[in-house]
Design a protein around this nucleic acid. Structure first.
Lengths: 304, 304
DNA sequence: CAGAATCATAGCCAACAATATATGGTTTTC
DNA sequence: GAAAACCATATATTGTTGGCTATGATTCTG
């Protein structure tokens, strides 16, 4: 009984609705015998008469009524499905799920805003998590896109930089070097540093620079949050190196200053990452396109 | 987009449910590439990816989820439909609509009773109407079966007798002829008669007999109801000829007697009538079968 | 790392769905 | 009663579906 075809149901529905074979044939744009045949096949398949012709009038049997109800409902829900697909294609609706590492919370929301207003039907979810959580989510294919400072080596991912992510040296407002330009690296190398824990992208980069320059890195304190580090620097506990993104750009930071040290800012990037063989949804593609177009406007460090 | 086939949806549903191509292939008893192909066709038809393979795990895209929901619902409602059909075939449910002329109300309910209890899932509707109303209903195909004393000449109907319907001569309890056997027709011919109106089947039969025997029929009163006629006869207003069915069989009629007149009872039948080219429902067929089997038990005048 | 499991692709084929045209029989309508 | 409308049947054709086998690529699992 699974051999009933959609076409047959479509034809039947038209006949049942219009109570006429020939009008149904017109509506579907086929010849009348085609309709007759489809209906006959349906009868044979189901094993009960569905339609009665008394005189030339079309009546439905009880089984016919049942089928009519069933396939009306079906055509209805299929119609809704087609509409949904059309909407998805036309970006009139959809979901975009992004997971990003913590530091991005300083600028990601700002980038999502304009996208949201251009595509009001699209729901965006931005999960802000630490790097480990993010990798977990990636492994489980929970999101469309991921944003991180250091893309995984893993060949099963694809990544591209989309935004500069300079690392700058921070010092307390009244540190002696604040006013100086072109500070030599050696001048800050002996300072005490307050950094993120081992494994953090920023920490890795700093260690690498010190190693290249041949200076030992003196870490006074490890803190798990950028905010805490800024507070510590402001309090005069030491210097730090952080992504410039962490600085509040609007209200000028009163108690912290950026030192103009040679070799800084370290040029790094924020990467958009996705599973290599994940077919991006239309929404996700559009979002990436959108980012590329608007990046100049949004990038506060854009090298214009 | 109407070219999606049921088979494809069935395959997709299985894949989506089992989250595996090969297990789906097993379940449906086809080779794995067949599943791959169906899914690919579906993708092409819909124009959006529905399934993602990350590693070897099966994920559904948003469009996939939509389709899954849609076609789960469909399979569900199709299943219910199949069940309904099976029930109809197996007589576990159904409707039987019968229209019968007024006089049959004295015995039809009694015949329906056992059928009802044998097929408790079947709803029976018995419409008791006059002959004209019944013909109207027949023209509009409102019922499955019709019961009447004189089937229409109309070739567009088919009829078969199923029950005897003898017409008997009724007289008041204390009429002089009540005690007599083998009464000559001439002995009652001069009596006053109380009959149904012209056009009634009974009336026609009586007129015919009188004509055959060469006596004028003297009609004292025409009444529209059998009950009224019985009352009139009991009241001594005259004799009458009625279907024996109209007499209450249980409680012996105290004030009316049947005369044993030569030529009576007139042998007539109740007919089951149906539109010639109406395919009978399984229920209706079963009911006719049932009647034939039980008629001897039910027929109070059976010629055993 | 080897083997097992899983999915994709290619190529082929039988079966069938879907359709048209031509024609004939009823029923309805004018 | 003739014409029109309507449905059934017969037959031929065409494209597609649904299926298989064989093989290759990738990923997961001991």
């Amino acid at each position: 009984m699974m051999r009933v075809t959609m076409r047959q149901l479509q034809v039947f529905e038209a006949v049942a609705r219009l109570r006429s074979y020939s009008r149904a044939a017109d509506e579907i744009h086929v010849a009348q015998p085609t309709v007759s045949k489809q209906i006959r096949l349906l009868h044979e398949e189901i094993g009960l008469p569905l339609i009665e012709l008394i005189g030339k009038k079309v009546f439905l049997t009880q089984a016919g009524e049942e089928l009519y109800a069933t396939c009306s409902a079906w055509l209805d829900s299929w119609g809704r499905f087609e509409q949904t697909i059309a909407d998805l294609k036309g970006l009139k609706q959809g979901r975009l799920s992004i997971a990003a590492v913590t530091t991005t919370k300083y600028f990601m929301p700002r980038m999502l805003g304009p996208f949201c207003s251009q595509y009001p039907g699209i729901d965006i979810s931005l999960e802000v998590v630490n790097r480990d959580r993010l990798l977990e989510r990636m492994a489980q294919n929970q999101d469309d896109l991921y944003v991180m400072g250091i893309p995984p080596e893993d060949i099963s991912t694809q990544s591209e930089p989309f935004l500069e992510n300079p690392l700058v040296v921070l010092a307390p407002q009244f540190h002696p070097l604040v006013a100086k330009r072109n500070i030599q690296f050696s001048e800050v190398a002996h300072e005490q540093f307050i950094l993120r824990e081992h494994g953090s992208g920023t920490r890795l980069a700093v260690e690498k620079v010190f190693e290249e320059r041949g200076f030992p890195l003196r870490v006074k304190m490890e803190l798990g949050s950028n905010e805490a580090i800024k507070q510590a620097v402001a309090g005069g506990l030491g210097l730090s190196v952080l992504s410039k993104s962490t600085l509040n750009l609007d209200a000028t930071q009163r108690d912290i200053a950026i030192l103009d040290v040679d070799g800084f800012p370290i040029k790094r990037y924020w990467y958009l990452v996705r599973p290599r063989d994940k077919q991006l949804s239309v929404v996700a593609k559009t979002f990436m396109e959108f980012l590329k177009q608007h990046i100049d406007l949004l990038n506060p460090y854009g090298s214009r």
